[in-house]
Write a protein that binds this DNA or RNA. Structure first.
Lengths: 161, 161
DNA sequence: TTAAAATGTTAGCGAAGGCTAACAAAAAAT
DNA sequence: ATTTTTTGTTAGCCTTCGCTAACATTTTAA
């Protein structure tokens, strides 16, 4: 079953809330996603039908095994994209997060896997700042400003929610 | 004015049809986008209101200056993404095109610009197949399988529509 | 333990962007 | 110059996913 972008956002949000709280509430989800409670309510009923969450009227909200599986994959996609946008393309953090969030639904698991591998390779390689000529001796020594460092910097400036 | 993904698809399609034909017709657009004529008709009325196309009932369809400007930017986005997905990540052509099409709306002009610059840099650098260690002598000589070559290959297999 | 506050639900609306059915106009063919 | 075919339009429906207004339930506090 192919989920919509909106549904993926719900799963992601519920997953992240579950990690911080014992009970996930409609209000929490609404707040985090910046939408209204009725919108959340409607979505939850659908996710329940899809067997991605357990949920009863006025009852608890929790991901099913399948829902959690989905959520993890979605989060992995977004994280990978953020790392690429921030660490490799040097896009400003907030902008990168926004774009990663919007892009992730469009990318297959396989493509994300390839991107992830590519990032690893590039991070190992370091960021060649000298004019990008591997035949040039200077390249060997310009690996000091790495994408890894940029990522660390972006991470440090993070605000805990 | 921020266009929707759907509206961008229409502009892109009209632009590409204009390049091949003297007159762009509702039927052409519907066929190319794989949707019905009434859907096209409705969209055209909106694009006209947005001053992105000139269009009268039973009349000609043509991009305005602003519409063409938008179309070019949209196509550039998709092309850049395709080059990255095919040439760098080595994603299979059809899959890459599909994903690029879906991703492009989410990416800003600036981010695409950065991606474009990055691709240029990597293409110049060549594709390091030897284990990705610039300190390794082998890296210097393994630039024979470049992303550029992969792109050429993908392009050669293209079917003219 | 009952009143107030917080939380959750239901009903129904609206925009986007597809669709079908039915009809109108234009172009092509006889 | 009619008829047929192709093309274009209109009307109205459906789904997704937001929203507000109104109400129900639960929790908290007096």
């Amino acid at each position: 079953m192919q989920l919509t972008n909106s549904q993926e956002e719900y799963l992601k949000t519920i997953y992240l809330l579950e990690k911080n709280k014992q009970k996930v509430r409609v209000t929490d989800i609404a707040q985090k996603m910046n939408i209204t409670k009725p919108s959340v309510n409607k979505a939850l009923r659908i996710l329940k039908d899809l067997k991605l969450i357990n949920y009863e009227v006025y009852g608890n909200i929790e991901l099913t095994k399948e829902g959690r599986q989905n959520a993890k994959e979605i989060i992995k996609k977004q994280d990978t994209l953020e790392i690429f946008l921030i660490g490799i393309l040097e896009i400003e953090k907030k902008q990168a997060e926004e774009e990663a969030k919007a892009i992730k639904h469009a990318m297959s698991k396989e493509s994300i896997e390839k991107l992830d591998n590519y990032i690893t390779k590039i991070l190992d390689l370091g960021d060649l700042k000298c004019g990008y000529d591997v035949n040039n001796e200077k390249c060997r020594s310009c690996i000091k400003i790495t994408a890894r460092e940029r990522l660390k910097k972006a991470k440090d400036s993070e605000i805990k929610i």
